[in-house]
């Protein structure tokens, strides 16, 4: 950042439907300028961070996120992530980041088959990422989910690595923070709701929607600090620009 407002890129794919919500959160919570980036371009326009928003890109053809990762812009996002640039994938954005290999694992069909759209509780498992620095470890957040394919799945070795490297950022939990099977809305392995990856834990993928919990009119403001953390994370990273 050169003293002015941060510029946060929001990827726009055919079928994105949370792009404006993500842009609004960037503007209202971070005081940033949202820059909407059309998928056919390769130009990230020098943004300071990238959000891959929720939606149903390409109508979820084949698998959720499977086609989006071939968008020309995603090559640029991958390079940005490899250089340590901050990338936040929400819902379909998480699915896309997994399909693109920027995060391990995959999001399978919900265990109960139903599309689940409601507020859930999340426990902050790692409060030392660029996305969670303003949360307390173990803090419980109320954030909505809205997905049909959100069951995080990976092989046992990957799961062990994620735990050993403290890369599980959010788990579905009870309101009091207990991680139980009942609190798991989709059957995700170990109740995983969000993980980080990239060379500096600079890529976060999560199924819940923090941008839908970022102003008092939305029933919860627990998602706000994810964006203020992101804002704070940008200050130390002026070296990484798209």
């Amino acid at each position: 950042m050169n003293g002015g407002a941060a510029r946060v890129g929001v990827i726009v794919l055919p079928g994105s439907n949370c792009d404006t919500d993500a842009g609004n959160a960037a503007r209202e919570v971070m005081g940033a300028e949202p820059v909407y980036l059309w998928h056919e371009s390769r130009d990230l326009q020098g943004v300071d961070a990238v959000i891959v928003p929720g939606g149903f890109s390409y109508g979820d053809a084949l698998r959720a996120g499977a086609i989006a990762r071939f968008a020309p812009l995603m090559d640029s996002v991958a390079r940005f992530a490899e250089q340590g640039g901050l990338v936040l994938g929400i819902c379909n954005g998480f699915q896309i980041l997994c399909e693109a290999g920027l995060l391990p694992g995959a999001l399978a069909r919900n265990e109960g088959l139903r599309f689940v759209c409601r507020h859930v509780y999340l426990r902050v498992e790692n409060a030392e990422t660029p996305f969670t620095a303003h949360y307390r470890p173990g803090e419980v957040l109320k954030v909505p989910i809205a997905h049909g394919e959100g069951r995080f799945t990976c092989d046992e070795a990957t799961c062990e690595r994620l735990q050993a490297e403290n890369r599980i950022v959010f788990r579905y939990c009870e309101p009091d923070g207990r991680v139980t099977q009942d609190a798991n809305p989709n059957g995700s392995v170990h109740n995983i709701a969000g993980i980080v990856g990239g060379p500096r834990n600079n890529v976060l993928g999560m199924m819940p929607h923090p941008e839908r919990a970022s102003s008092c009119g939305l029933g919860s403001e627990d998602g706000r600090r994810l964006f203020t953390s992101l804002q704070a994370g940008l200050v130390g990273r002026a070296d990484v620009r798209a």
Partner: peptide
Amino acid sequence: KLLANPVT
């Protein structure tokens, strides 16, 4: 590369 996801 595309038609199947090797994870699942």
